[in-house]
Amino acid sequence: MDLHRHLWDARRTDELGVRCGAEPVADRPAPDPALLEIAPRDRGYAVDRWGDEARILLDSEGRQDNTVLVRLGSRQRVIAELGPAGLRIAPAYPAGAVSALAVLPYAATWRPPDLELLRTGVISIDRLHPLVAAALVPDDSPSESVRGPIHAERTHLVECGSERHRIGVVDGALSALDHDRTEIRREELLAALTGTPLPCLQVIDQAHRQPECLPGVRERLAHGDVAGALRVVEGLLGPEAILRDGALRDELTATAQQRITHGLYRSGLSEPQLTPDYPGVRRPRDRRAHPRNATSY
């Protein structure tokens, strides 16, 4: 962790671009072709950074030996030697001394997953933390990406009258993209007066109250994955959405109440009636159900 503070310390994010391999380094020796055969770039190995990371590792431990051990998997190991031409596979090394070698950390062996996802187009720059985005793509701005045109894969088409309209997350909440604010406000007032709003607003209301992802949310909540359930909800409705009355809100409210009750029970602050009534659990009694009449002599 100390050798890779750029991955978790906000004060060191300026190092992230170079340490993760996003920014090129001048005069860096080319990787050993033998290393590339064992650890090709397309498998996610940060082989271009191994020489620099090996130097950081050896200097931090004050070692005189320039040899490091690289773990490529659960069983595969590579012994490499650092020299003027960069990191090269060591020609020979005593078998009994392998356990004493410095081991290249996992974070230095592989490329960061966010960089891989960004390069393959699985995620866009606005999905990254602003500090990470600024380090990985210095010439781009996440805020500008958010304000730009909405990506097609993040919108849903709705048959609204005789036209096909889009709904998507804008400013953190699910919205109808092809209706202006005045029209949306008028339709919301119509719905409040028991009228039937536009199909776009009906779909948004359905997503708030009884979305298709509700079974998946319930399953995550049942397994205790509250964070995962919230990610699903935020991915559908947006992080700034305010839930409306319905099955989805009931599920999340019930889970929150259960966590509060469990926390009070574990801390000893719960009322007697909050004690879980599991089968086979004997509840404590404050008095006898059939008190005996005492007799004095």
Rank of each mutant, 00 (worst) to 15 (best):
V170E: 12
L58V: 09
L177N: 03
A10H: 11
I79E: 02
T196S: 14
T253M: 10
L57C: 05
D32Y: 02
R231F: 01
H179C: 12
R282P: 00
A135T: 03
R288H: 13
Q257H: 07
I204P: 10
V158G: 08
G62L: 08
T194M: 11
L237I: 08
E251C: 13
A152V: 14
Y93S: 03
V217G: 05
P211Q: 05
P291L: 04
E187C: 06
E144M: 13
G168N: 10
Y45D: 07
G280F: 09
N293L: 14
H179P: 01
T120M: 04
S162M: 03
G246M: 04
L243Q: 01
A173F: 02
P40G: 08
P112V: 10
P215V: 04
L72Q: 11
A10N: 08
V233K: 04
R292Q: 14
G168L: 11
V132N: 04
L58W: 01
H151S: 14
Q273S: 12
P29T: 03
A133C: 13
E234I: 00
V103Y: 00
H4F: 13
L131P: 03
A294P: 05
M1C: 06
E23G: 02
L82R: 05
L87R: 07
L230G: 00
A222H: 02
R43V: 00
V146S: 08
H129R: 10
G44R: 07
A134L: 06
Y297R: 15
L118S: 06
A191T: 11
W50T: 12
P33Q: 06
T255Y: 05
Q64Y: 02
D139V: 10
L131Y: 07
E159N: 08
G280V: 07
L274W: 08
S175M: 07
W50L: 11
I89F: 01
S162W: 03
I260N: 06
S141G: 06
L104M: 07
L82V: 06
W110E: 02
E183C: 05
P197V: 07
S267H: 11
S162K: 14
R181T: 10
T196L: 09
L201Y: 01
E163M: 10
P215N: 09
V217I: 15
P113R: 06
Q206K: 13
P142R: 01
D171T: 11
L87W: 03
Y278L: 15
C20Y: 00
L198Y: 01
R71L: 11
R181Y: 01
E212K: 11
R12S: 06
